[in-house]
């Protein structure tokens, strides 16, 4: 095996992990851009996406083409419910209060998933087939490529949505100044519900795409959430292209240090680089 082939394989490994981190980072960014908080329940939206897909496929016997959008729609609905029953009744604009609320909601959601789906691990079939793509002797799963492509499409749509549509502009207005937004007649409550719906949808999408690679369990989102969160910060919290850049960079850092230095200390290497980047650019790579 040549050195180039190894390098390519390490890059593919990094891109596979990185695509997963990026998609989860994206979910964190959406809520941050619309409500201005870190939504810790985001990680459970990811697990829920996988759970709904699993349920659709094996309990109801739906084909993939129906189960997948169904799962995403289901989590979107959960996002709305979380906003209506969990966040709104607090009637608070204090970010710290809202963040703590999302932590509580996250624990509740995980408890419900534990009761409904049990604690055992589950396998979810991939969207794009199991046969790896071989490029110059190195192999990558089609699912990882699919994740990257769909993440890119999602970012394009999000940018159009936030810049060009009425609802998207309303969300940005609410995020920047809630009082002023309601003064000019924006229905703040409905806009907030819509942003949680969007966050739920993105989390659910991440769940259905990521769990075929990671395997599914009620706490799978939490395990990936930390890395996704780190990726979001590395890229600049709130920036969509930053989320992808941060995710892929974190994945590449891990796999290249595992490949060329030491697999036992790959996380150390990745997080030391993350700290160094934040020393130089405290707002992250693409942060504003």
């Amino acid at each position: 095996m040549s050195g180039f082939q190894d390098l390519l394989q390490f890059v593919f490994a990094g891109v596979t992990s990185g695509a997963i981190y990026a998609l989860i980072a994206l979910g964190f960014c959406v809520v941050h851009n619309t409500i201005g908080i870190v939504n810790f329940a985001q990680v459970d939206f990811v697990s829920l996406g996988g759970m709904f897909l699993f349920t659709g496929l094996y309990w109801s016997g739906l084909p993939m083409a129906l189960a997948l959008p169904g799962a995403v729609a289901g989590v979107t609905l959960v996002g709305i419910v979380v906003e209506r029953l969990g966040v709104r009744p607090s009637r608070s604009q204090n970010h710290l209060v809202l963040i703590f609320l999302t932590i509580g909601i996250s624990i509740i959601l995980r408890g419900i998933m534990k009761l409904v789906w049990g604690k055992n691990r589950m396998a979810v079939p991939p969207l794009a087939g199991e046969e790896p793509l071989r490029i110059a002797g190195a192999a990558i799963l089609p699912q990882a490529v699919a994740i990257l492509i769909i993440t890119a499409i999602a970012i394009g749509l999000l940018v159009i949505f936030f810049r060009g549509t009425r609802l998207g502009l309303c969300m940005r207005a609410v995020a920047s100044n809630q009082t002023a937004a309601s003064v000019v007649g924006i229905p703040v409550g409905r806009v907030k519900a819509a942003s949680f719906a969007l966050a739920g949808g993105l989390g659910g999408l991440a769940g259905v795409l990521v769990t075929p690679i990671t395997t599914l369990s009620y706490d799978v989102g939490v395990m990936l959430g930390l890395k996704g969160f780190a990726a979001a910060i590395l890229g600049g919290f709130g920036s969509f292209p930053g989320a992808v850049l941060g995710g892929v960079m974190l994945g590449l850092l891990e796999s290249l240090s595992a490949g060329y230095w030491s697999s036992a200390y790959k996380d150390v290497a990745a997080f030391v680089v993350l700290l160094l980047v934040l020393f130089v650019r405290p707002k992250g790579l693409l942060g504003k």
Binding site: A13, S17, A139, M223, A258, G259
Partner: peptide, 20 residues
């Protein structure tokens, strides 16, 4: 001798080195 995190999602880098 290669190591991986129990929560890792991809071990192809370690496997490549192991195989080599």
């Amino acid at each position: 001798q290669e190591a991986f995190g129990p929560k890792d999602t991809d071990m192809t880098a370690q496997l490549t080195n192991a195989k080599n």
